[in-house]
């Protein structure tokens, strides 16, 4: 049966003390470096524009909480709305009337007016929102 030698005991005590000291120093530093989460009220709908604000065959970026959305007035007079964040690397997309598509200027990602990827690097389609016209307001809401 081996008995813990005095040397081993001292080494163990020293290393564990130094380890604890390092943990006590670095744990608050690492936690400090990660920013606290700021609570946000979950917004489910927003007034994206007023009726008559958009010309036919054009688009507009609107604020949906902290994120951008895109509202498009199609040639037939109907509205479409999507998240404006490209699914590739997060750039803000725009409506290209000349190509009749939603386009991302960062890496040439192209989406059709259903949010589906036509070409380019985006891996996923754009999330579509509901659009309803209430009185003078164009209200965009998240799909259930």
């Amino acid at each position: 049966m081996s008995i813990l030698s005095r040397r081993k005991f001292l080494n163990f005590s020293l290393i564990s003390s130094l380890g604890s000291l390092a943990a006590v120093i670095f744990y608050p530093i690492i936690r400090f470096l990660m920013p606290p989460k700021t609570p946000q009220a979950a917004q489910t709908e927003v007034v994206a524009a007023k009726v008559g604000e958009l010309q036919l065959d054009s688009g507009k970026i609107f604020k949906f909480g902290n994120e951008p959305g895109i509202l498009i007035l199609q040639e037939d007079g109907t509205y479409k709305a999507f998240t404006a964040i490209c699914t590739h690397l997060g750039c803000i997309v725009q409506y290209r009337a000349d190509l009749n598509i939603i386009w991302c200027g960062c890496h040439n990602g192209k989406y059709d007016l259903f949010g589906k990827v036509i070409s380019g690097p985006p891996p996923l389609p754009l999330t579509e929102y509901n659009v309803t016209v209430i009185n003078d307001n164009i209200v965009v809401s998240k799909k259930a």
Binding site: I61, F62, K63, P68, A84, C86, C91, I92, V93, Q94, C104, G105, C106
Partner: peptide
């Protein structure tokens, strides 16, 4: 401006 589309030719 965090709420404008990515400009062309970036």
């Amino acid at each position: 401006d965090p709420f404008i589309p990515t400009p062309i030719g970036i």
